[in-house]
């Protein structure tokens, strides 16, 4: 499969979420591969502030013109902030999945969990091997 656009310093999950870890905060979104597969996103159900989430547990959901899909938390913690702009304009995820289309920030409970995530290179290889 073709190379997809990735951000080098982000970490990735097998379910096609990305996470940017900055100290004790993890900003979470979905990858270029995920947004392209979903197609135009028309709805997002965001988590609530202070929701406790578990690593790889579902914490948000999206609907696109093609399908509905759950989004899983890359790390455990509590939801600190959500991107409310997406409620009015979920298509931001299609337009800018790594920046303006971020979904939520999680206050990280256990920084060691990042070891079970993939680097950009590892994720790229994962896409190639599974695609």
């Amino acid at each position: 499969m073709e190379e997809v656009e990735l951000v080098d310093h982000y970490l990735y999950t097998k379910d096609h979420e990305w996470v940017e870890i900055d100290g004790e905060t993890a900003t979470v979104g979905i990858t270029e591969y995920a947004q392209a597969s979903l197609g135009d996103i028309t709805f997002i159900e965001l988590p609530s502030i202070d929701d406790e989430v578990e690593q790889f547990g579902d914490f948000a959901s999206v609907e696109s013109v093609k399908a509905a899909s759950d989004i899983f938390a890359p790390v455990s913690g509590s939801v600190a902030e959500v991107n409310t702009e997406l409620e009015e304009e979920p298509g931001l995820i299609n337009k800018s999945c790594y920046e303006k289309g971020w979904i939520a920030k999680i206050a990280i409970a256990d920084i060691e969990e990042k070891n079970s995530l993939m680097t950009a290179d590892e994720y790229q290889n994962f896409l190639v091997s599974s695609g």
Partner: peptide, 8 residues
């Protein structure tokens, strides 16, 4: 629908 959420 009362929201952006779509039936399937």
């Amino acid at each position: 629908s009362e929201s952006r959420r779509s039936p399937r």
